[in-house]
Design a binder for these strands. Structure first.
Lengths: 197, 197
DNA sequence: CCCATTTCTTAATCTAGGTTATTTGTACCC
DNA sequence: GGGTACAAATAACCTAGATTAAGAAATGGG
């Protein structure tokens, strides 16, 4: 089972770089498996994100709580996704993101320290993370544009396309906290949309 | 003068990696200087972003135009900033960002092709771009959180802190297109704020 | 299987910010 | 230096989405 998880992460990496068996072994050795039960936290705001997590099963969510107590979801991470508080992870200072599990979840953790060592020892890993950071940057920008230019209904549709597996598995209030509306308004939109068919 | 520009970009890079004189020379050789006059374009939507630009003087802006014809500014790039359409640059497919000059501007261009070659030849450059992409990612996320959780007035204040040099040099309508309000509403906010002192 | 908690829906009311329109101010260009 | 084009201000009115409140439905833990 742990073996299966290792295959998943190696397949994820193989999309961008090719590793020798020795390099694979070296990498696997640095990973710490961890189980996070539903509603438990991988990371709290005001903590330092020592690790980046790769999800092998379940689903995590990263969110902030604003001054009025409202939650804003930055990212969901179902299986095969990477997640961390990037600010805290790269600066190793305390961050403002909470990461918790919306269902029982398994992750493989890589510490920043080991990651940086890996960059020195096997530059291909620096390439891998350079590439996935470039891609995250693109999707973060895309989302910012969507928030600036789309209506709530359009953002909901976009969400459904982006996270198709999540629509029926996560509470609607989480979707609302992601697209930037109140749960009440999302409910109203869905009611109107279902009328029209 | 071109020498001065080269010093600027080398100093920018030296913040994160150390280069030998030979490596510096190799890098400089790959750069193409370009002048963009006020209101002229470095890149149009529907073009492929062949280059990433480093601004040595003046100021660029990157923006999209939505389906209703409204402009949304993603980034301003005064001197010492890097700018490109990241999606188009990494995929080499056509993008949706326009980049133009809000005043006469000088840039140094690095093509994606040369950048990737540089990553193969001198891994330190892959490190440099890995680091600045991580940092852009952090600021993009920060801005997304701000858009989800702050009022227009608070976003205006945040803008003033983030781009202090721009407040008096760029048109207010550009600031409005960045913080996500109409120029009319920004004008109203400023009037109210100045009343209170 | 049942109770407690959380989630979802509906509806009335409210407001931040948008829209439209007009006026005034400013900058550049021949 | 005067006209054209763009930028900013002001004000009346409008709407997408928030707030508040209350009931209905679903879920999960024991």
């Amino acid at each position: 089972m742990s073996q299966a998880n290792h295959q998943t992460i190696l397949a994820n990496i193989a999309r961008h770089i090719e590793l020798t068996p020795a390099e694979q072994a070296r990498f696997i050795q640095l990973l710490t498996p961890k189980t996070i039960k539903r509603k438990q936290f991988l990371l709290n705001a005001q903590q330092v994100a020592r690790h980046v997590a790769f999800v092998t099963a379940g689903c995590l969510r990263a969110y902030t709580i604003d001054d009025n107590g409202f939650e804003h979801v930055l990212q969901f991470a179902p299986a095969d996704w990477w997640i961390t508080d990037m600010y805290s992870f790269i600066s190793q200072h305390e961050g403002d993101l909470n990461i918790d599990a919306i269902e029982d979840t398994e992750v493989l953790l890589l510490s920043r320290q080991d990651q940086l060592q890996l960059f020195d020892d096997i530059p291909k890993f620096e390439r891998f993370f350079r590439i996935i950071t470039e891609k995250s940057m693109v999707s973060s920008r895309k989302r910012l544009i969507d928030n600036l230019s789309l209506t709530a209904q359009e953002r909901y549709n976009t969400f459904c396309n982006y996270y198709p597996t999540l629509i029926n598995t996560i509470p609607q209030k989480q979707i609302a906290a992601y697209i930037g509306v109140t749960p009440e308004f999302l409910s109203k939109m869905r009611a109107q949309a279902s009328k029209k068919g």
